[in-house]
């Protein structure tokens, strides 16, 4: 199997009117990994995914998928890509089995065993009418229709959207099932950091159209650190700290989150002469929130004048 990345973008850029949706995106997704594509709503994830699939033209730059320019994907290559999006076309009058047969006609590599496995996993009956399915069941059917052609590359655009915890777990289990084949690649966007933590090898973080991180999950988690500084008196004013993300101030404490915490950061913090300084590891979700949350100093404590007025 070649070591060439399954997805590679170079300077990928797209505007909607004057608004930049994706800015100068350079992304590489290695074969055989699970890649989480993260970012807040409206950060440009779906726009990127649509450009990857050649459904939307970039204004600048290029996207390359399975070794082919996205704008020139042939039907044969498309058949090797599974794409799951919210607005998946289903015919309400069909039942689950018919929906499978209908889809199968388009795919030479259709695997009925996978289809049955996934619908069974979501508790779907083959005779159930599509229009009577719940949201979670519909998602299960869509996933089954996407997985059954045994795609080499699976692109899931927020597959967990609106799913209850049980259906979401089934989705994650299906993704792990797909990983039995080590040459299969999954690229998915999500807001559920717990799920990401369970399945992803790599993650990329898009922030307001700009790629801010792209690395193994563990590196991301390690690069964001919380530091707790205890003071005998009132904590001093915070000077510029390299890599500062957020700072919270309480009566005798300053809690600071930093990215790329290193000796230089520590020296700057020690210069404040705290009584104690301690670094605290962060969970993935907390790391993500400090990374993308509003920068700067915040406080939970209202001053006396504010509380009494």
């Amino acid at each position: 199997m070649s070591d060439a990345p399954v997805i590679r973008t170079r300077g990928l850029t797209r505007y909607f009117g004057r608004k930049c949706a994706v800015h100068d995106l350079n992304l590489e997704v290695p074969r055989g990994c699970v890649f989480a594509f993260l970012g807040r709503n409206g950060s440009g994830k779906s726009t990127t995914i649509r450009m990857l699939l050649g459904l939307l033209q970039p204004d600048r730059g290029e996207a390359n998928v399975l070794g082919c320019d996205s704008r020139a994907l042939t039907p044969e290559l498309r058949a090797r890509i599974g794409y799951l999006t919210e607005e998946h076309q289903l015919y309400g009058w069909m039942n689950v089995r018919e929906a499978g047969e209908f889809q199968a006609a388009f795919y030479p590599r259709w695997n009925e065993k996978i289809f049955r496995g996934v619908i069974g996993h979501f508790g779907l009956k083959p005779e159930a009418r599509v229009k009577h399915l719940s949201r979670g069941m519909r998602a299960g059917l869509c996933l089954a229709l996407t997985l059954a052609p045994d795609p080499e590359l699976l692109i899931l655009d927020d597959p967990a959207l609106g799913l209850d915890p049980v259906a979401r777990r089934s989705l994650v289990e299906s993704m792990i099932y797909l990983m039995r084949r080590s040459d299969r690649t999954i690229f998915f966007s999500s807001h559920h950091l717990g799920d990401v933590e369970r399945v992803a090898d790599y993650l990329a973080v898009l922030d307001d159209s700009v790629l801010r991180a792209c690395c193994p999950l563990e590196s991301f988690r390690n690069s964001v650190q919380e530091v707790q500084l205890r003071f005998d008196g009132v904590p001093p004013k915070l000077p510029p700290i390299p890599g500062l993300l957020q700072a919270f101030r309480t009566e005798h404490e300053l809690r600071v989150t930093c990215v790329h915490y290193n000796g230089e950061t520590e020296r700057a913090l020690r210069a404040l002469a705290p009584a104690a300084l301690e670094t605290v590891p962060l969970g993935l979700e907390d790391a993500f929130i400090s990374y993308l949350g509003e920068r700067g100093e915040k406080t939970f404590i209202l001053s006396d004048t504010e509380t009494s007025s």
Partner: peptide
């Protein structure tokens, strides 16, 4: 037992 969201990585 696996806890996601914890400060201890899953591995």
């Amino acid at each position: 037992n696996i806890n996601t969201g914890a400060s201890v990585p899953i591995y």
